[in-house]
Structure formats: C-alpha cells, structure tokens
Simulated scan of single mutants.
Amino acid sequence: MKQCNGSELSVPSFLNNDFLLDIIRRTKNDPSITLCHGFKLRPVTDECSSNESTFRATLHYRSNRFHQERAIDLVVKTPLNDKPSSSTEFRMYTKVLPTMTKMLEDAGEPFHHPRLISAMQKPHSVLVIEDVSWLGWTANKLGLNTFQDVIPMIQEIAKLHAASYNLNQKSCDLTAFNKTLFPRDMNGIHDSISTNIERFCDTIQTRKDCEKLVSKFQKLKPSLDAKLNHVYAVNPNDSGYNVLNYASVHTLNILHKTDYAGRVTKTMLTNFQSCSWGSPAIDLLFILNVVVCHDIKLSHRNEIIYEYYRQFVRILTKLGYLGSVPSLVDLHTELLKKSFFEVYLNIIFDEASYIGPSEDHLNQLNYNGEKYLENIIADMHTLMFKGCLNC
C-alpha cells in the first residue's frame, strides 16, 4: 500500500467554490448559504491509499437563517483511475455503512467511521466525508503496544464482521465485494513481493540456521500469486465462513482517541476502498501482524484471537442473530487455512513496527535493523514449521 505524496497531487479543476458551495447547500438544505471567503484544498498525506486524490478543506459560510459565521471541515476524495477500489468505497459509504451503522446503533453498539457528507458519480465521481482530525482522532503509526489499547480496534472489526455476517444472511447480499481482491488490485504486487523476498534472503543467507529458510523462500516465489489469491478466495458454503473484511487494517487507516494517560479509548475505521468478502482471518492477521507491536503479538496472540471471537459472538447475539454461529475452532481453522497471509504481512509490513512506516513502503525494505531481523527470522522459522512456506 502506498502512502500518498501530497506534492504529487493536483487539484481537479471542478473542485472549486461553486462545486463545494452546492454540496454544502444541499447537505444543509439551505439555498441561502454563501461562502465567507475562499478556501484551500490541502492534500492528505497521512492516509494509506494509492487509488484516490484526497484533500482536506475548511469551508466558512453564512446563511440567512443565522448571522454568525460557521465552518465545516471536509475530506474530499476523487478517484485517480477506474480501479474497482473506488467504486467499493462509494458502495460502502452510500449503501452498506448506513444500513450497518443503524443496525448496530439500534443494538446499542455505535460503529465509528467518518460521516458521509455527499456522494456523487456524475458529472464527477466524488466522496465528501467529515474531517474527524479536529475531533481528536489521530493515527498511531508505530503500532499499538498494550493489549488494552488493541481492544477498541478488535471491537470495531468484530462489529463490521458480525453486522456483515448478519446482513448477508438476512437481507443484504455482500458477496459482490469479493471483486476487489487485494492482489489483483495492486499494480506490480508480484514484483514488489519478489523483490522484498530477494532482499530478505540476501540479508539472512549468511546467518546461522537460515539456510533452509532461504531455500524455502526461493522455491516459494513461483507460487506467490496463487497463494495470495487463495488468501482472498471466498470460502464455499460447505467449508468455512465469510464476513466483510475491512482488508486495509494499516496504522495509517485506523484512527484512535486516547485519554489523559495516552491509553486508547476508541478506534475508528477510515478509507473503506479495500473491503472484501472472505475469511475473517484476513482482518485478524492484519491486526496481529500490522497494527500491534511485535512484543504484543508474541505475548497476547491467543488473547487477541479469543477477544475478537468473544466480541463477534456477543455482537451477533445483540443483533438478534438466530442462525448457526461459527465456533472458535472454526476461526482457528480459518487462520490456519490463510496462514500464508502472515508470511506476506511480515515480509511487506512488519518492519514498520521498528523503523516506522515510510513512503512507497513496498520498495524500501532493506531489513537493516538488528532487532527487526531477529524477530522476523524467529517468526519465519515458526511459520515454516507450521508449513506456511511450503509450495
């Protein structure tokens, strides 16, 4: 996933005063609104997205209905291309999230995500959502480093999974969201993974007890595409179960609120362009290998898995779901079936826990940090012994 570089973004010509004024008038249902002065669109560089131009704007306005000046903070998204991910986020904000949010709120479970202000596909494809940064929501770019801090993240993912599982069984077909598979939606993903595997192997090949690991990776490269597509393949009805995955559980896409001591109290999901119908293991492995710090993954892995499952069942119960509920064994089976994803996430993302996320992260992993190397080598040996590196 590529972090946007603000200097590369140019503002589309249609994003002008008249365009945004019309949006505010329709949103507020007030044709008398006027803009007080000009505004400036600021490129968003703290969101993990490669398929959209994303801008922030603060609009100051007045109306005949009130005399004082008011302001509204917006995030404006326009697609860079016609990739399916753009239509995925549009469908999420206009159809799925409203239904899901109401269902959860009616059950006493608030679901945190930016509020939709406006959505249109003609004459231009644009999503306008509220800018929550001024409300105290911030990203933790270095990973969550206590189990308690992870719980709000687990709860939000469990809400998404449980609500989607319930909706799909009852009234809303979500299976079409398997069209935006992550491996197929990234240009050059195979080359990037292969390059990082080569760098990793070059780094560890002279280290003690790494010969077999290097050999396994070299033999694995021809089957990378097949293995990644297997991760995102939808489970058939008679084997496993499916939910709507957020599928972009990256530190730049997850916002948090903290208390006076810096402890996470709430978590919010943003950037819904990668949502994918499939195994719940996708999001759970993202949490374990990208969102939490390495030490927490090692010390609390089972607790994180169990807490997610407990929340999933609890929310299904509150939603009034009366069907068969997947068991904890079913969840562990999904994690085992999709275990190659853990190899992928470690190779691509895990270094961010030690050196911090960087622009164009896929192409800048050099595996230089000794602490990182020690941990990833140990992790890869564990995954190898589980059979995750078999061709």
Rank of each mutant, 00 (worst) to 15 (best):
C201Y: 05
Q205V: 11
P280H: 06
G323Y: 11
T94R: 03
Y241F: 15
S324C: 08
H67G: 06
D283Q: 10
N253V: 07
Q155L: 09
L135A: 12
C275G: 05
V313F: 11
T34D: 08
N29I: 06
N346T: 06
E374L: 07
S223E: 15
M153T: 13
N64H: 14
L35R: 05
T333H: 08
T138Y: 12
L319Y: 05
T180N: 15
K371N: 13
S10G: 03
P236M: 11
F272L: 12
E370R: 11
K297R: 14
H37L: 03
K371S: 09
S223W: 15
N178F: 06
R70H: 12
W277K: 09
F340C: 02
I24K: 00
P152F: 02
N253E: 00
Y241G: 09
L316Y: 09
P79I: 07
T175W: 01
V11M: 06
T175R: 10
V234I: 15
F19H: 10
L285T: 11
L41P: 06
S125Y: 07
A281Q: 03
V44M: 15
N229W: 11
F217R: 03
L244S: 01
S133P: 00
R26G: 04
I282V: 15
K318I: 07
L255K: 06
D330R: 07
S85K: 10
V325A: 01
I254P: 00
G323N: 05
I33P: 00
A139K: 04
A261R: 13
R301E: 12
C293Y: 06
M153G: 00
I24S: 00
S358E: 13
I157V: 15
G278M: 01
T78W: 02
L288R: 09
A247C: 14
H381S: 03
Q364L: 13
K227G: 02
K2E: 14
I296Q: 05
N166A: 12
S53F: 12
T265S: 02
I204S: 01
E156S: 01
I315E: 05
V76E: 00
Q218M: 13
L373D: 02
E47R: 12
L20K: 05
